[in-house]
Design a protein around this nucleic acid. Sequence first.
DNA 1: TGTACATCAGTGAACGCGCGTTCACTGATGTAC
DNA 2: TGTACATCAGTGAACGCGCGTTCACTGATGTAC
Lengths: 240, 240
Amino acid sequence: MYNVDEEGATPQRRRLTRAEAKARTREQLLDAAARAFAQKGFAAASVEEIAELAGYSTGALYSNFDGKEQLFLELLTARRSRGIARQAAAVTEILEEEAAGNEDPFAALSQLLVKVADRNAEFAALQAEFWLYAVRNPEAMGIVAAKLDEQVDALEPLTTLAVERFGAAQGVSPRAVTRVILGLFQGLVRQRRIDPAAVPAELLTQALRWLFAGLQSATTTAGPQAQGGHTAAPKTPDDG
Amino acid sequence: MYNVDEEGATPQRRRLTRAEAKARTREQLLDAAARAFAQKGFAAASVEEIAELAGYSTGALYSNFDGKEQLFLELLTARRSRGIARQAAAVTEILEEEAAGNEDPFAALSQLLVKVADRNAEFAALQAEFWLYAVRNPEAMGIVAAKLDEQVDALEPLTTLAVERFGAAQGVSPRAVTRVILGLFQGLVRQRRIDPAAVPAELLTQALRWLFAGLQSATTTAGPQAQGGHTAAPKTPDDG
DNA sequence: TGTACATCAGTGAACGCGCGTTCACTGATGTAC
DNA sequence: TGTACATCAGTGAACGCGCGTTCACTGATGTAC
């Protein structure tokens, strides 16, 4: 569309400047590293393999990164995961569909998330690698925690809306609900990858329904202030 | 206590027979391997390290196993995870406490599970290693799926009891609820390891309460037969 | 615009190290008489 | 019970291979005039 002059203000077409070319190489190496680490794991994936996957030699890798570990850490810190972007996209999509009002939002949301999770199988593996790295290298925990927070941030708007629409007890914090939903999905999606038949998409839908039904009716337990009180209800009157 | 004759029928004290000694070595190597694989990962843990951790040389390892990978697979197949045994113990403990009737079973269960999860940090790491191995080596998926089933089996009795006691809609399958609870806990415990402050034990308790409250009231959605129907309820009468 | 030099992104062979695996050996346990 | 031999669980040095990292080099891009 745009046909820029010789000194183009938008540096997208034409020859790349040296810095741009280097940045492009960096990105390609990061892409390749993400794939390789997901497919083989941090320790088992070799730098030669990564470089080759990106279409470069190992030297190019060392020209752009301090080494294998720093490459991994760059993936961990610098890169906003695509998965999160996709989740955000999923969120808005669901918001729209639900605004239309003619679909079951729980089924739509869970099936979309399952579809996304099934499609890019590598994402979950890479995330597991990150988790293991953090567990084994406590100095990196903060970074992984921040990444987790990003995911919660991405999902929280949807939770807030759902809570508003379907109702919830007074003391219920949307962020807490979001964390629970995220945990629930992460756990079930992992199970699903191992045994798809045992964890159908409907199970996630079902779980969401249970949860939101519970949010409405579980008002009895905790008031807006105290969180840890114990209930009196479960006592059965006369017991054998 | 027992002071057996020279030909003891119970081969526990005294000198070990050759086969017994070998079995003992095998177990020690498996223990060491579990620790090493959990702490460093399958690829990064070395056989020398494992052997040394068990108090043997690498030759002993190769005298008992075909190699590093077979050792890992042995861990995956033969060993009933201690974590499962602990979970089962936790289950019965909760059953008893709940039978006494003077405690909040949700809080007791979740706090106990969190305590167990926090204590043996290695278990979750090893499980993540297993999961990654299965994802990368599909021929091992069945084994990991079976291991997962074991965990569901161990938790199902408690779920069944809880469903009976707190009530649930007709179509609710205890096994489905168990899978959801397991997924929920696995997901949240993983989050908790990364960011303990963000995932307090009370959040798990809360999640359990929501879920069981939902099980009681979410009857409307699915009858005992159809599972995938879409609800009419969420429509708000007049909307801006 | 054209030429001469400087820069530096990427090459790829080389290095050394740590790993998984092997194997000749050892000495304690098992067996035969 | 005692002796002579067989077995075999565990040893530890040795091997070769693949890995992460280095570095002298190349040729395309950038700069100065």
